[in-house]
Design a binder for these strands. Structure first.
Lengths: 107, 107
DNA sequence: AAGCTATACGTTGCCTGTCTACATATGCAT
DNA sequence: ATGCATATGTAGACAGGCAACGTATAGCTT
């Protein structure tokens, strides 16, 4: 996801807290199946976001299985807003350069 | 530029061959000043693209200064088309997930 | 002549993010 | 017992991007 993973994770947690496995499924669902991120990508990212203060994690046991549920912190919401802004800017710049007319100064 | 740099470089070379320094300036111009890429980013990328067969480089001397001018190869044009396709997909997925309604199933 | 800026090339070495592969454990169905 | 879905995680490799550094010429100013 080339540096945009953090934003995506924060975005799916905006609707409410989820645990890691559910986050992977949520990303899959929201992307229409396009995003199938391996645990080796997502779990470290969650740790990273927690360490950064964007997420708060807590353990619970559901049906004999251990779960670590993450929720957005206030800082996380700000981070999400920032990520959305940065994404818009990034998107615009890349789209502009990528689709620039190959004919310089036609008229 | 997180993995999209190659596409941007190929895109500015679509209009015609340029040397490294001019590529940096072209990216700056096309992005409205947003992109100010350091040489440590661009020159290795050019080498990489040449090694990959997307660019063909040639030396020349202009005004006593050495220049390495790069032009798109046929493979490079295909690579550019592929990059554009990938970008569209990437853009759609990220935009969708990032801007997904926080209210699941409103009605 | 000395110094500065713009032009033009490049490398080295670090940091970060991502992924593959591996490791662990439970519940449930067969 | 075997296998699958659920659920967590780590270790190690790899690649891209960047800051910092290094080299050199042309041209202008002082």
């Amino acid at each position: 996801m080339r540096g945009h993973l953090d934003g995506l994770i924060l975005a799916v947690l905006e609707a409410g807290p989820l645990h890691g496995y559910a986050i992977i499924e949520a990303l899959q669902a929201r992307s229409g199946g396009a995003l199938d991120l391996p645990t080796g990508t997502v779990y470290p990212a969650l740790r990273r976001l927690e360490r950064a203060g964007s997420l708060a994690g807590s353990w619970s046991t559901v049906g004999g299985r251990e779960r670590r549920t993450y929720k957005l912190t206030r800082a996380g919401k700000h981070a999400l807003a920032a990520q959305r802004g940065e994404w818009e800017e990034f998107r615009e710049v890349v789209s502009r350069v990528l689709s620039a007319d190959p004919w310089p100064a036609t008229g």
